[in-house]
Every structure is written in structure tokens, then in C-alpha cells.
Design a binder for these strands. Structure first.
Length: 607
RNA sequence: GCUGGCGUGGCUCAGCGGUAGAGCAGUCGAUUCGUAAUCGACAGGUCGAGGGUUCAAGUCCCUCCGCCAGCUCCA
């Protein structure tokens, strides 16, 4: 297989799913890499990262280079230097990169011993490379292009001339080796493609994503805001509440159908509860505390301890189980200020939580039930694709290994029984149990963690939960924590970006905008409005004495699904002219026909 | 929290040592219009907050707050 990268090709031999890239060795022999790569563009980007590092070193010879890998859709390189990069520097670096490309420098791989590499990078005064070498094998590879040499596993293209379509994108801080205790380096992000069109298309995609930013659309459509007085604590506006309530109504109905009962637990509870639950030991950093009558209280960061108290309020028979207890629970978490991001990352949010208390024999069927539930919401209703991850015991876990193994196996078995593919995240579980996470994919291919199912043997133990079995013995129930939307706030943010504000009619804050052609038609407009209002349609009339074109434009910008134009013609015939935000003029409809059409559309939750 | 950047009317932005500006939105008036922006007038800002430098500070310096891009963390 040969990939065309503008002129000379990199040659690669096909092998299984990936393919191997061939390199020129020092002696001019072909060298075959052992690492299969998925994508020639990755090699291109890796080489682009080297060219960028070379350019930076030419401009700032005292810069220390750290690492420069490829990432999804691009690459970065981390630098340590006194000078602070500015956006203008990016242009200068790009120009220097351009020059390096023009120089058509051959890229040469060498294999040397670790000691030789230490000697080389000591001479070059590159301490970060020396640190990397400490953890590498006796034999390492380096790549040279002109005066530049880098410690690198490769593979690379064979000449700098082949990196032609690239763009430096942004500068950011990044800790050396991702460790917040180590020095902060300066990272430059860039991207590169094998042809001009692909690069342009990618940059256009980024612009498109920026236009869908839920913070911008949320303001323009007057859905929500975050005020300076409450960083990370969002305000929902009337229109945002309509959307939110539509989601909640849907959520309630689906839970009712699946045998859940709804509860509400308090936001603030005595500190002792959080000691017992393990949150004090494992989650204190993220919690808010307060004092009432000289007693310490905590604001809940999770709903489960409240749920425990509810279960414990009375004795339970094995006949009662499973108990599926759902709660739209408002939780508060102290997140680091730098991580806050619109509705995606906030300090108070509403989890569509549920706790399922069950017999050990019910574990698998209950987990499968939740998996089906998540699938029906994500796929059938919203049309999202998603993938699944299984997270196992973390460092700060409570409960013994046997308990964890049992819980993790149960989750695995349920996934296998459902035939779901999943990736495993070792050590990424909650402190009280392993979890299955659902990551949904939006229309731009970005993924978001939303749903999660966590199996918990620890919490029932800590709270001494029991049920009475058929032999009149006290037994320990097992518990599931789960969410479907995850957080209502984050889910709404994802919906805003996924639909770019053009919500399906069942979610649209305003479903119909009535647009009178002139003031003379206001009375008829009001008649139409009343009919729709009585049919439970969310309708508004634009009563301003503006021109029709302007009212249409504004309704379009508000992404209102239907505009009803009413003027002399419609008044005479007792009809309405229907304009759809995407399909345009749909012609005239008898009002009852339109009501039927839109009512069906809303009921079916069609997109 | 860390690194860098940025805070001027509801929004987008100009002004960068010498008495606060524009467009859109808003209000009022005129216009009564057929599928994405009618015209005019008016009103609106202690220039994020607090200190300092200066005869004089949106404009320079310091501290704090908030926002943005990442890092770390996560629903």
C-alpha cells in the first residue's frame, strides 16, 4: 500500500489492520518499523511536531524541548523557556517551519545505546530528554533532520519536504508529565494534513464546533446564564426551564413505565452521615460545609447517603425487592475554578439519579435493565451513538478485594450477556464500587461521558442495610447507583451543541411563532394563538409592527420550528401559512390539520 | 488550583495618559408591509473591584474577582 503525501510517497507494506512504514536507515537500507500505525496522517503530524520543535530551537536556541506526540486531529510539542509565546510567535514559527520544509531535509533514524543518547542530549543541554532516557531501554532511536535531533521512537516521513499543509493553532500551559507538582511548560498545538482540502475542511469543522458553543447559543436563545456572583452555579431562564421540564417530564414517564418510584432527599445533611458513607475520607476536597446550631453539616455532593437513610426508614421483605428509587438530585461539588465550562462543568448540577436495592440474585437482570434503559434513551429518542467503558477498583477504594471482584465480575457478565463491546479503565471506578460508563457521541464526533451504572456492595454494609429473607433471616441487599442523562445541565449543553439550538419540536422552548403580516391581522393571529394554546402547543405571537421579513428572520434565528404567517389571505379563508425553520414555506394548512401535524410530531419526539 | 491571554452600556467592538464612542438590541414616534434585517428620535456606561503612580488614569503599576484556552480532575 502506498500513501501519496505530495510527491514522494512513504511506502508501507500492508499487514493486518494497520500497516508498516518503511524508513531509510543510515546505511541506506530499508528499515521496517515494528509499530503498526493506523493512519499515515499520524506519521505526518509526528514529523510536523519535530519540524515545529526545530523551528522553535532556531528562533530560541536556549529552549528546552519536552515531548511532542500526535493527538487526535493534530500534534503538540511542549517547551520550557523564559520567553512567553504570543500569538504573533506562532506566525514566526510557522514561517520558520515553512523554511525547514523548503530545505527538504532528509530525516534519518539512528539506533544508539542509551549511554550514547545520554551523552548526546547532555551536550545539547536537554534535561527533559535525559529524564526520559532514565526510563528507556538500553537501545534507543533518535531522528535527525538537518541540525535538529530528537529522541524518538518514530516512525517519521523521510523528508521535511513532505509536510506541506499544517497550521499552528494555540498556546497553552501543560505540566511536565501531566503532574501538577512539576514545572509548567508551554505547549503549542498544531495540525497537519496530507492535502490542502483536508486541512481546510478540518479548520472549517472547528469553526462549526465553535458556532455551536452552548454558551453562545444559550445566551442567544435566552436559555441560561452564569453570573459573576455565582461562578459555576447556572441560572435557568424561562425558555431554558421549558426545555429542562420537557426533559424531566420525559424522564418521569420513562421511569414510571420501568417500575421506579421517585423520591427527594435534602441538600444538606449532618456531617456524621458523610463520615459513615466514606465521603469524608474520600471526597471531602470536593464538598461544601456549613454550621447550624453549632453542628456541622455538609451540602451533598452525591445523593446516595440520603437514599440509604430512606431505605433504612423501615424493614424490608425480600418480596419488596428490587426497590428502584429515583431522584432528580441537586448536588454541589467544589470543582477547581479553572475547570468550569458553561453547563458542561459546573459546581451545582442535577443528577437524574437512581438507587436500586436488590437481592444478589437480581443483580444481573437489574444491570441489564439499566443498560436497555440507557440504550433506548440515547439511541431511540436522541439518535446518539455511544460507546461503553468499564472502570475498576481505584486507589482510594473502600471495601475488600473479594467484594470488588464480585462487583466487577457482575458488571462484566451483564455487558457480555448484552453482547456489548467495552474498553476497560483500570483504577477508574468510584470509591465505593466499579462502574460502567456510557460515552455518547455528538454530531461532530465528540464524546461525552453521561450515563453510568455503579455496583455497590460497600454502602449497604456501611449503613447496615438489611432485608428479611424467606427464612426470616436478616440479609444484606446489593445496590446499584445509576444515572441516564448524567447531569441534566451537561445533557442540556450536549443537546444544545448537537442540535445547534434547533431542538426537535418536543423540546423547543417555543414551538410555533405566529407572525401577523400587519397590525390589521392581530385579532386573527390571537384567535389562532388561542387554538394552539388550548391544544397545549407552546406558541407566541410577534405583535410588533415590524415588517414580516424581520419577524421571520428573528424567529429563524431563535430556531423556532414553525412560523405561522397570518395575513389578509389566511384571515379570509380561515387558514394559516406554515413556514418550517429548515424546509421553508410549506403552503397553507387548515388550522386543525396543522394542530394535528405538530401534535403528532411532538408525541413521536421526531427530530 | 497551575500557565498564558482577556474584562468599556443587554450583545459585538472602537478609544490605549488629557472632559466616555459606534452598530445591533431597548423605548417612543412614523410606517401597515406576503416568507431572513423600514425610517427617525430618545434613553442607556462610577470603563470588573480595591489600592497606587501622575497636575490628570478605560488608558501605567500592584492586589483581588470573573471570563477564555489548555493542564490536572470529573456528571
Amino acid at each position: 500500500m502506498t500513501a501519496n503525501l505530495g510527491g514522494t510517497a512513504i511506502t508501507s507494506s500492508h499487514c493486518g489492520t494497520g500497516f508498516f512504514v518503511l524508513h531509510q536507515s543510515m546505511k541506506g537500507e530499508k528499515y521496517e518499523m515494528s509499530k503498526p500505525i493506523e493512519n499515515v496522517e499520524e506519521v505526518l503530524r509526528h514529523t510536523a511536531a519535530h519540524i515545529m520543535a526545530q523551528a522553535v530551537l532556531r528562533l530560541w536556541p536556549d529552549a528546552k524541548v519536552a515531548i511532542g506526540p500526535t493527538i487526535k486531529n493534530g500534534f503538540y510539542y511542549d517547551f520550557d523557556l523564559e520567553h512567553r509565546f504570543t500569538p504573533e510567535d506562532l506566525e514566526r514559527i510557522e514561517e520558520e517551519m515553512e523554511r525547514i520544509v523548503q530545505e527538504k531535509l532528509p530525516i534519518i533514524r539512528e539506533e544508539i545505546t542509551n549511554e550514547e543518547a545520554v551523552e548526546l542530549f547532555s551536550k545539547l543541554e536537554q534535561p527533559y530528554k535525559l529524564e526520559l532516557l532514565e526510563e528507556l531501554d538500553d537501545e534507543v532511536s533518535i531522528y535527525r533532520q538537518g541540525e535538529f535531533v530528537d529522541l524518538c521512537r518514530g516512525p517519521h516521513l523521510d523528508s521535511t519536504s513532505k509536510v506541506r499543509f499544517f497550521k499552528l493553532q494555540s498556546i497553552a500551559g501543560a505540566y511536565w508529565r501531566g503532574d501538577s507538582k512539576r514545572p509548567m511548560l508551554q505547549r503549542i498545538y498544531g495540525t497537519a494534513f496530507s492535502n490542502k482540502k483536508a486541512l481546510r475542511e478540518h479548520l472549517r469543522m472547528l469553526e462549526e464546533a465553535a458556532k455551536r458553543d452552548h454558551r453562545i447559543i444559550g445566551r442567544d436563545l435566552d436559555l441560561f446564564s452564569i453570573q459573576e456572583e455565582g461562578p459555576g452555579f447556572p441560572f435557568f431562564h424561562p425558555k431554558g426551564m421549558v426545555l429542562r421540564n420537557a426533559l424531566e417530564d420525559f424522564w418521569r414517564e420513562e421511569h414510571r413505565k420501568r417500575g421506579y418510584q421517585e423520591v427527594k432527599t435534602p441538600i444538606m445533611l449532618h456531617e456524621d452521615l458523610w463520615h459513615r458513607s466514606g465521603h469524608w475520607d474520600n471526597y471531602r476536597e470536593n464538598m461544601y460545609f456549613s454550621e447550624i446550631d453549632e453542628q456541622n453539616f455538609a451540602i451533598k455532593p452525591m445523593n446516595c447517603p440520603g437514599g440509604m437513610l430512606l431505605y433504612r426508614r423501615k424493614l424490608h421483605s425480600y418480596r419488596d425487592l428490587p426497590i428502584r428509587m429515583a431522584e432528580m438530585g441537586l448536588v454541589h461539588r467544589h470543582e477547581l475554578s479553572g475547570t468550569l465550562h458553561g453547563l458542561m462543568r459546573v459546581r451545582c448540577f442535577t443528577q437524574d439519579d437512581a438507587h436500586i436495592f436488590m437481592l444478589p440474585s437480581q443483580i444481573q437482570s437489574e444491570i441489564e435493565g439499566v443498560i436497555d434503559f440507557v440504550d433506548s434513551v440515547y439511541r431511540d429518542v436522541f439518535g446518539f451513538k455511544y460507546h461503553v467503558e468499564l472502570s475498576t477498583k481505584p486507589e482510594n477504594a473502600i471495601g475488600d478485594d473479594a467484594m470488588w471482584d464480585k462487583a466487577t465480575d457482575a458488571l462484566r457478565e451483564a455487558l457480555d450477556a448484552k453482547g456489548l463491546e467495552y474498553v476497560v479503565n483500570e483504577g477508574d471506578g468510584a470509591f465505593y464500587g466499579p462502574k460502567i460508563d456510557f460515552h455518547l457521541e455528538d454530531c461532530l464526533g465528540r464524546t461525552w461521558q453521561c450515563g453510568t451504572i455503579q455496583l455497590d456492595f460497600a454502602m449497604p454494609e456501611r449503613f447496615d442495610l438489611t432485608y428479611i429473607d424467606e427464612n426470616d433471616q436478616r440479609q444484606r441487599p446489593v445496590m446499584i447507583h445509576r444515572v441516564i442523562f448524567g447531569s441534566l445541565e451537561r445533557f442540556i449543553a450536549i443537546l444544545i451543541e448537537h442540535f445547534a439550538g434547533a431542538f426537535p419540536t418536543w423540546l423547543a422552548p417555543v414551538q410555533v411563532q405566529i407572525i401577523p403580516v400587519s397590525d390589521d391581522h392581530l385579532d386573527y393571529a390571537e384567535q389562532v394563538e388561542k387554538t394552539l394554546f388550548d391544544a397545549n402547543i407552546r406558541v407566541e405571537t410577534d405583535r410588533r409592527s415590524e415588517k414580516m421579513g424581520k419577524k421571520i428572520r428573528e424567529a429563524q434565528l431563535q430556531q423556532i420550528p414553525y412560523m405561522l404567517i397570518v395575513g389578509e389571505k389566511e384571515k379570509e379563508a380561515g387558514v394559516v401559512s406554515v413556514r418550517h425553520r429548515r424546509e421553508g414555506d410549506l403552503g397553507t394548512f387548515k388550522l386543525e390539520d396543522f394542530v394535528q401535524k405538530i401534535t403528532e410530531e411532538i408525541a413521536s419526539k421526531r427530530q
